[in-house]
Each structure stands twice: as C-alpha cells, then as structure tokens.
Design a protein around this nucleic acid. Structure first.
Lengths: 108, 108
DNA sequence: ACGACAAATAAGCAATGGCTTATTGATTGC
DNA sequence: GCAATCAATAAGCCATTGCTTATTTGTCGT
C-alpha cells in the first residue's frame, strides 16, 4: 500500500556488513571487481553477488571496460534513504523546514 | 577492527519491512505493545521480538506503566545512521558541512 | 580459432531470520 | 491468594541469505 518500498532494498543492501564495506570502499573511488576481490577475503562470485545487490538497490552502477567491469557509487542512490530519515517531522519539528530545503538543494 | 559497528544493528533493524513499519508507527507517537499488536496483523510475540530488535539497535525504548509497556522512538538513536550517511563527503562535498551542523543542532 | 583472464551465473549448503504456538513473568483488582 | 490481562521468552518451522565451488559468458592477445 505504501508503494513498492525502495527503502527496503536500500536498507537490506546496506544491512550486510560485507556489502556495506564494499560500498564504503567504492565511495573512495571506482574499482573493478578484481580489485575488490583482492582487498576483501571473500570469493569473486561473492563480490559479484554483493555488487548485484547494491546495483539492484540503485546504490552503485557498473561500467564495462574491456574485460574489467568498474563499479562506482551512484550518488543519488542514497536520496530515498535521506528522504526517509527526513520524514520524521514529529521529532525535528521546526528544523525540518530547513532540512527539507537543504535536501531540495541537494537534488540538483 | 572498525569497532562493533553500531550501524550494523541499525541497518539490520530497519531492513525488515514489518519492523520499519512498527518504527514508523512509533514516530507518530508512543504506543503500548497491545496497541501495536492490534494495528499490525502479526502476533504479539512477533511485535515484542521486533521491539526488542529495535531497542537493541538503540532506536526505541520501552517504559513500563502498570501492565502495559509503552514504546517510543529514541530520537538520538538515528544519529549513527545520519553520521554514517554524512560520512560521504566525497559526494556531498560542501553540503555536508551544513547538514552536519544541522544535525548537531537537532541533537538537543 | 585458440588460450587466458575477468566477471556473471548456477547449484548447493549451513546459518540466520521472521514468524508461529506454548509458556512463563509481571501487574492489577477482586 | 487467585483470575485476568499485558508483555517477554522458549521452542520449532520454513524461507531467506551469504557464502562456497563449478560452470558459463564476455573480451582480449596471439
């Protein structure tokens, strides 16, 4: 009833520690799967699965270049999460107006 | 190595749709377990388990009053999550400073 | 066309998670 | 003390999940 819940996929994607570490790693710069496989002690398929998960959530995107596929963070992917947080008017009352204004600016 | 990861518990707590709906419900005001059991179509133990989960994550707290236990959102519980998001200076650059400042003010 | 390398997919497995019903604990009113 | 009510815990069940190894797909260099 409350729409297909984009938040679901985002929260779920970030809930797993390994996956969040991969994501955090990507925030420090784009990286190929190979490179990620080397810096985390899990198998290449595991990495690819995590990346697929993050991609499905709209948090990263992949770009093929030759044999490599480079992944990078999709900056706007976090927006639904931020919007969700900003939704708590009940607690932030007067400050929310300013927060929302801030978020609007972030959109561009 | 990166501390016991408070974010883990928060993300995990909010990753489940039922649990997030309970949390959202609490943002609209404190409520007893009984009340929550009535408005969600799951059993009372399920509700209690979800609340325990949210409590463990620091997102809510319970207060006993007679036979009832009233749960409410812990406003500051979201801070680690917000901090985590704000950590992405690489993407939000100048706007982050203002966001963080805003969040600091919200703390009180 | 071939072999080598990078990445994605398939299949399977052990662990976890969200639910249920049954029970126990806590608190109130008679 | 006892019955009634609200909440927490215990035990068990089925689905999901995060990993693994094995295989397939894609791309390059020769």
């Amino acid at each position: 009833m409350v729409a297909p819940a984009v938040e679901d996929r985002i929260f779920q994607a970030l809930a797993d520690p390994s996956r969040r570490r991969i994501f955090e790693s990507l925030t420090r710069g784009e990286a190929a799967v190979k490179s990620l496989t080397e810096r985390f002690a899990i198998s290449q398929p595991a990495i690819s699965q995590h990346l697929a998960h993050l991609k499905e959530a709209g948090l990263v995107k992949g770009r093929r270049e030759g044999r490599n596929v480079y992944y990078r963070v999709e900056p706007r992917g976090m927006k639904p999460l931020i919007d969700w947080i900003a939704h708590y008017r009940a607690f932030w009352t007067e400050r929310v107006a300013r927060l929302e204004q801030l978020l609007d600016e972030m959109e561009r």
